[in-house]
Simulated scan of single mutants.
Amino acid sequence: MGAFLNKPETKKYNENGEGNGLRYGVASMQGWRVEMEDAHHAQLTLNGTLSDWSYFAVFDGHAGARVSAHCADNLLESILQTEEFRRDDITEAIRAGFLDLDKKMRELPELSNGEEKSGSTAVCAFVSPKQIYIANCGDSRAVLARNGAPIFATRDHKPELPSEKSRIVQAGGSVMIQRVNGSLAVSRALGDYEYKKVMGRGPCEQLVSPEPEVSVHERLDSEDEFLVLACDGVWDVMSNKALCAYVHSLLQLTDDLVAITNQVIDTCLYKGSKDNMSIVLVVFPAAPKPDPEAQRADRELDETLRQRLTVLLEQSAGQEEDTSNHFSHVLKELVKEKIPGLPPGGGLAAKQALLDKIYREFYPDHTDSSEKFDCQAELADAFGAN
């Protein structure tokens, strides 16, 4: 659960689509973890009379990928099949669908016999023509942005929250080092059945609860810009405000949502994220469009960074016998210059690919240009997680 690679796996899975007046992009990356345990589901059109509804979800597995994969494949149908959904009680249908899935999943052979102990967080959203229904179970998070700022964010279910800790203690457990029984870092999740064995208590009264928190938001076509669903590998190093500002700025540069989501998780990697990362970006009609002035300013910023980094490289050339941390040293000097106009929320980390390219051009004989990952802790400190 806590094992890491020597270097991050940066190959990405991407997906995108357009329909029902929405556009979406997906990016996921294994990163430093030895296994990819995230999963997701994006569906622009639901079946039958729900053809104008869309569904998006992110699942962050732990102790294995079995539960997250099963949830990605089955949560939507579990919700749609509830009696509550047929009665148009969508909020209760989502809640019932989570509980039903958790109950049925327990009977899967590899989970019922105890061989598989994995669990998964889940954050999902239904977008109808008039409303957005958002549900969260665990510490993946959804954020809705208007005018470049977050107007709603789901609550992370952490064991130290008073209401969560109270349930855990009443079920006979404890919260140590901000973990359930000193082990699990989330207080709500699907799966994790070793924490759901307290006799005489219902599914929502166990050490770990499968119950989501569900909210509904009226759509404002003139103001809704985008919805982000992402696992904690993103939120560990980006605040809600920073990520919304960053995505808003990227939408002014390109309408390629795959490029934007890739840029976000790369930036999070450079900011110090050590976890798997998955992000689903859902864009509404009022989102920013590519702007020639913003694009011009970005090109000028790139040229400024090229000039300043080249100067620093020339000044440091031949000064260091040990070049193992040369790149990080030069970047730290660049950080000190506080160059104006860096991407809001992304900062210098958003330009890491450009800086790496400039460095490799200056030192073409340095075949391992991934030196930045060897000193990631130092770079993350220099770039700053916000």
Results as ranks from 00 to 15, higher is better:
Lys289Thr: 13
Val280Gln: 05
His329Cys: 14
Asp236Ile: 00
Ala317Gln: 14
Gly272Ile: 01
Gln315Arg: 14
Leu257Gly: 13
His248Lys: 10
Gly272Met: 00
Tyr270Ala: 15
Ala245His: 07
Thr254Pro: 03
Thr304Tyr: 02
Ser278Asn: 13
Ala230Arg: 04
Ala287Phe: 01
Phe284Glu: 05
Tyr246Ile: 01
Cys268Gln: 07
Arg299Leu: 14
Lys271Glu: 03
Leu305His: 04
Ala294Glu: 05
Ser324Gly: 10
Ala245Leu: 03
Leu253Ala: 03
Asp224Ser: 02
Trp235Cys: 12
Leu312Ile: 09
Leu229Trp: 02
Thr310Trp: 04
Pro292Phe: 01
Phe284His: 08
Phe327Cys: 13
Ile265Tyr: 05
Gly318Tyr: 07
Ala242His: 06
Gln263Glu: 10
Phe226His: 03
Arg308Lys: 15
Leu309Gln: 11
Glu321Lys: 15
Lys274Ala: 08
Tyr270Val: 13
Ser273Glu: 08
Pro290Ile: 02
Leu312Pro: 09
Ser324Cys: 12
Ile279Trp: 04
Asp291Met: 04
Asp291Leu: 00
Leu309Ile: 09
Ser249Cys: 03
Val228Gln: 03
Ser316Gly: 07
Phe284Gln: 10
Ile260Lys: 06
Ala317Asn: 14
Ser222Pro: 01
Glu225Leu: 00
Gln263Pro: 00
Leu281Ala: 10
Leu257Tyr: 11
Ser273Gly: 05
Ala230Trp: 02
Ser278Ala: 12
Tyr246Pro: 00
Lys274Trp: 13
Ser249Pro: 00
Ser316Pro: 01
Phe226Gly: 04
Glu321Gly: 14
Ala230Asp: 08
Ala294Arg: 01
Val247Thr: 03
Ser239Pro: 08
Glu303Phe: 08
Gly233Glu: 02
Phe327Tyr: 15
Ala245Tyr: 05
Leu253Thr: 07
Ala245Asn: 09
Leu227Asn: 10
Asp221Gln: 08
Pro288Asp: 05
His329Ile: 13
Ala317Arg: 15
Glu300Ile: 11
